[in-house]
């Protein structure tokens, strides 16, 4: 199985590569269109800032390639937000537009610090990605922006209102939390993805 991990200088890529290594699978970190197109599965990790990530994707022509992919695709964290239409981050940023959501910022309140950082529970799980998981299992989040709940939502978390912890449209699935840093629960999700 060929797994392509999209390289757009999105940070935190090494942790995802190590997580795959722990599962005994080999992955290629690449921005090469041919390698990406021919891969069996695509991982699209990311941490950092939306506008600079989009600039890098455009510079490599990936903003045109990614929406055309048909193999199983998993976005992680910023890699999920980038699949939306628009983000408030970076003074307003056009995203890839693969899924019909707009990314907005959490409003800080006394008991609700921003970034939303730490272990939170998952609800309303509905995807083969979550096979073997239970409602209220814990995963690790670090983010200041989020995608609202919509018909594309396949898992929710709450902070303080429900938001999309995971989304899916066709072959494009994505999670807001860090599967590679979420202990055995995160590992199970990665395994499930590799089995898709």
């Amino acid at each position: 199985m060929e797994i392509a991990v999209i390289n757009y200088k999105g940070g935190n890529v090494q942790s995802v590569l190590f997580a795959l290594e722990r599962l005994g699978v080999r992955a290629t970190l690449t921005a090469d269109h041919e390698l990406i197109r021919s891969a069996d599965k695509i991982l699209f990790p990311g941490e950092g800032e939306a506008a600079s990530a989009m600039r890098e994707l455009r510079a490599q022509g990936l903003h045109e390639l990614l929406p055309t992919l048909t193999q199983p695709f998993l976005g992680i964290c910023l890699g999920m937000q980038l699949l939306g239409r628009h983000s408030e981050e970076g003074g307003g940023t056009q995203m890839l537009g693969i899924l019909p959501f707009d990314v907005v910022r959490f409003s800080a309140a006394a008991e609700y610090k921003v970034p939303h950082m730490g272990w939170n529970t998952l609800q309303e799980l509905r995807s083969p990605l979550f096979e073997g998981l239970r409602e209220e299992d814990y995963v690790y989040f670090v983010h200041s922006y989020y995608a609202p709940v919509g018909e594309y939502t396949i898992a929710q978390a709450t902070y303080p209102a429900p938001f999309s912890a995971a989304v899916q449209h066709r072959n494009f699935a994505a999670v807001q939390f860090h599967t590679e840093k979420s202990g055995p629960v995160g590992t199970r999700i990665l395994e499930n993805f590799l089995k898709l």
């Binding site: 090494q14 840093k181 590992t187």
Partner: peptide, 11 residues
């Protein structure tokens, strides 16, 4: 850091 990251699945 590299050795720890290779093994550790928490932040």
């Amino acid at each position: 850091v590299r050795d720890v990251a290779r093994e550790l699945d928490i932040p």
